[in-house]
Nucleic acid binder design. Structure first.
Ligand SMILES: [Mn+2]
Ligand SMILES: [Mn+2]
Ligand SMILES: [Mn+2]
Ligand SMILES: [Mn+2]
Lengths: 219, 219
DNA sequence: ATTAAATTTTAGTCAAATCTAAAAAATATA
DNA sequence: TATATTTTTTAGATTTGACTAAAATTTAAT
């Protein structure tokens, strides 16, 4: 089944909001999509008609099994293109999201299958997020926030939860990337900030909110 | 300046029709776009407003200098993606057009520049058509229809004028591809058909209309 | 030069996706 | 519990791109 760009954007963003809370509400989706609540309500009715959504007026909504499958496919396309843009075209990891936002809607099955094969079936995108396979299975990446890592441990950055431009700008400033090696030096109880050593750079201190968003591999 | 997918499709198809005759008429564009003449007239007015078109009611229309630049950029994107799909993803040359039809509308300048570089600045797409460079310059490919080639000559197929699925199906049947070596054996005056030898396959006869559409390199 | 035929444009609808303003329902507060 | 606030939905309007049917114009044929 084929969906419009607009429908796909709604479906994908509902999917992302469901990662935080099972039931999604109108305003948070409107905010996510930079649109108005009234527009969201209109689209919700349409998606419910198409059996993509479980929706009860004034209560909230969540993707149906069918809607979830569609969402995972869009996420798959988005992340494969992001991986392509970084590893093949040489984009910086903080520049690829907007472009993938368009490419994800080119939904030829054969194209995505061949792209996946060309890229050698990557497990995660440039931000460390897992790439669903052709059957919709999502690889489990074992990871831990550095807010919770034992002191003096050396770890490898595997993903970043908040991927806003502001966060990516800060991470670039700290020279932190996916794959970067970090050492957790010490924790300061006053503000729960953490001193870390990034690769060969001088040690620096990151705040609690930043630390919570940086995840590292965990065997 | 950003244009809608619909606007871009109109612009590109006007460009292609202009390769055959300088002035384009409403019905032929409607036919090309599989739409109705009334819809075309509506869009013509809009494109004229945006200074992309020189248009006189009931007379016909052609792209303005500005419109031509936009068209060449769309053609560039289309052909680069086609080249990518065949050389990197392993698609057959007769399967890429429909996909490139979507990809051509993802119009991030940086993306296309990096894609071009990744592909090593190809001169022609998988159908032998020239790929405009970043400044809109179109490489001149010296070629000749095999309807006009001297007998007994060995030549290399460089492009195919008619790229309809029906034509591509026939060419596959004859084992003719871009880059294929052909020998022109003899011409038959009755119907102007031509006997050719394709690579190592047994000699076969192609009709005049087919021959006129197959072009070969010409130094 | 008339008339007939083909082409093109206009007029009026329609569907998708958006918006603002107002009404309805749910939630929070006194 | 009654009232105020917030959230969500409805009602009605707008824009884009498409359509059909009818009118206008051009081109072809008597
Ligand atoms: Mn998108
Ligand atoms: Mn990502
Ligand atoms: Mn197109
Ligand atoms: Mn082509």
């Amino acid at each position: 089944m084929k969906f419009s760009v607009s429908e796909e954007n709604y479906i994908k963003n509902i999917y992302h909001l469901q990662q935080q809370s099972d039931l999604v509400n109108t305003n948070s989706l409107a905010n996510e999509l930079q649109t108005k609540a009234a527009s969201v309500t209109d689209m919700l009715k349409k998606l419910q008609m198409k059996k993509l959504l479980d929706y009860e007026k004034y209560k909230g909504f969540r993707l149906s099994t069918k809607g979830n499958k569609v969402a995972i496919n869009i996420v798959r396309r988005h992340r494969l293109w992001e991986y392509f843009l970084v590893t093949k075209l040489g984009f910086e990891w903080d520049k690829v999201h907007a472009i993938a936002e368009d490419l994800e809607h080119v939904s030829n099955q054969d194209l995505i299958q061949k792209l996946d094969s060309f890229l050698n079936y990557p497990q995660t995108d440039p931000h460390g997020d897992p790439i669903p396979d052709g059957d919709g299975k999502i690889p489990v990446i074992h990871q831990l926030s550095i807010a919770d890592v034992t002191e003096k441990k050396k770890v490898i950055v595997s993903s970043v939860a908040n991927q806003s431009p502001a966060m990516l700008e800060l991470l670039n400033h700290y020279h932190i990337n996916i794959g970067t090696e970090l050492k957790i030096n010490q924790r300061f109880s006053f503000d729960e900030s953490i001193e870390i050593k990034v690769g060969k750079y001088a040690a620096c201190i990151i705040s609690k909110p930043v630390a919570k968003n940086i995840f590292v591999h965990h065997e």
